[in-house]
């Protein structure tokens, strides 16, 4: 397979400001509604339920009332070097498009779940059951995203269909280029505290390319070399350390941004 040239085309990415995020869960719901994500009777079974955008609750473990909690929303990282792609025996997941979004084609997926094992972010979910919607609720399904069947893996697509709709709209107006705010995934649009910024990391005019230069920006498990396109911002030092499984006493290695003391 042809390897994508990441310098060419767009490289859509996200910056999530954890200091702003209240962990309210609106993004998760907007995502589920937008993408026809099915609902289990027992959504508390986190090994079986499906959340394209899952929120993790992390705490600094300090005693009351010095406890701090960070809610960490985790979509698919849309890695530049995705570990899930080379393991797929069915070419159901690829990283070959012009926008840097890692595809997942449900009709092609054979359900072997190698990609789930390969993904260090647990960003992929498997359909253990037939997609279920409470009686009558199949009426709110959106035709923009095809519902999945039992036995396939699904994951966040950065609402790729919104990119396609945005392009169609631009074409109608006779344009080929998209404005920054024309293509926004559902979670970004829904975030009530505007904690998520979205745009083309290759485009210096987009806010994201400015935000990732922020000294408090980091990515999850950067040392694995997966080149995630989802960045996080936080002034909380303990959170940034937690993002990359450092050993006790180990400091950040080269290749990562130097530690900055926050005030």
């Amino acid at each position: 397979m042809k390897k994508r040239d990441s310098a060419k085309g767009a490289r859509y990415g996200m910056v999530i400001d954890l200091d702003r995020c209240t962990g309210c869960g609106t993004c998760t719901i907007a995502c589920a509604a937008e993408n026809n994500v099915s609902v289990l009777y027992d959504e508390s079974d986190k090994t079986r339920n499906i959340n394209w955008l899952k929120i993790y609750m992390l705490t600094n473990g300090k005693a009351f009332p010095h406890t701090e909690v960070v809610y960490l929303p985790r979509p698919c990282m849309q890695c530049g070097n995705p570990p899930c792609v080379p393991v797929c025996p069915a070419t159901a997941t690829t990283n070959d498009s012009d926008d840097g979004i890692v595809s997942q084609i449900y009709t092609r997926c054979i359900g072997c779940r190698y990609c789930m094992a390969a993904c260090p972010y647990h960003a992929r979910d498997f359909n253990w059951f037939d997609p279920a919607f409470p009686k009558g609720m199949d009426r709110y399904l959106s035709p923009e995203v095809s519902p999945r069947m039992r036995g396939v893996v699904e994951k966040c697509s950065f609402c790729h269909h919104r990119l396609m709709s945005a392009k169609s709209k631009a074409y109608f107006e006779g344009r080929r280029d998209l404005r920054e705010d024309e293509y926004i995934p559902a979670c970004v649009e829904a975030c009530p505290t505007q904690a998520i910024t979205f745009g083309d990391l290759n485009n210096p005019k987009h806010r994201v390319s400015e935000l990732i230069k922020n000294p408090s920006a980091f990515r999850l498990l950067e040392r694995l070399g997966t080149e995630p396109k989802v960045y996080y911002l936080t002034t909380k030092d303990w959170m940034r350390r937690m993002a990359d499984n450092y050993l006790q006493g180990e400091s950040k290695k080269e290749g990562n941004r130097p530690e900055k003391k926050n005030g």
């Binding site: 869960g25 609106t26 719901i29 509604a33 009686k135 009558g136 009426r139 829904a190």
Partner: peptide, 14 residues
């Protein structure tokens, strides 16, 4: 809010 975002489920849950 999350509840407002999930309103279609209130409408369509037969």
């Amino acid at each position: 809010c999350p509840l407002g975002m999930a309103g279609q489920q209130i409408l369509y849950n037969e």
